[in-house]
Simulated scan of single mutants.
Amino acid sequence: MSATLKLTHKTIGVEVRRGTYGVLVDGKPVGSLELNQSIDIPVIPGHHTVQVREGRNTSRTKTFDVVDGETASYRCSGKSILPVFLLSFLVPSLALSLKRE
């Protein structure tokens, strides 16, 4: 029995942070994600958390539930909106985001 977490590093408009994202599932490193790339991560069915990091910048932790055979998909992107970009220098946790697709 398994499920899948699919992450895509794709942006719309100007990408502020273009580096490689480290991916953590349930607090453990499971891989990395380049710009314009997708990865599929096998997970056991149930409740999980996902987070992406780039250097000192970390996304908020997102929780998700998957059942056997299901795929949970997220798009990862750096903030491209200027006020949020400027604020990200003061509050690094705003620098990355995960959006469920």
Rank of each mutant, 00 (worst) to 15 (best):
L90Q: 07
T8M: 08
L33Q: 03
V84K: 11
T4F: 04
V84F: 10
N36T: 14
R17H: 15
L87A: 15
D40N: 11
P83W: 04
I12D: 14
T49C: 05
C76E: 05
D26E: 05
V52E: 00
I39M: 01
K79S: 12
A72M: 05
F89K: 14
V91E: 07
P92N: 13
A3W: 00
T8I: 09
R60V: 05
I44M: 10
H47C: 03
V16E: 07
T61Q: 15
K6T: 00
K99F: 10
T61C: 05
K79A: 09
A72H: 00
C76W: 06
T11N: 15
V16P: 00
H48Q: 03
F89R: 06
T58E: 14
Q37E: 07
P92W: 08
K10W: 11
F64P: 14
S38E: 13
V16W: 14
L35K: 11
V84G: 04
R56S: 08
T20E: 14
G55K: 06
F85A: 01
R56Q: 07
L24F: 14
L94K: 08
S80H: 15
P45G: 09
A72R: 03
K28C: 03
V91P: 02
S73N: 13
H47G: 02
T20C: 03
H47A: 05
S32L: 05
S93N: 08
I41G: 00
A95S: 14
L35G: 04
V23E: 03
S77M: 05
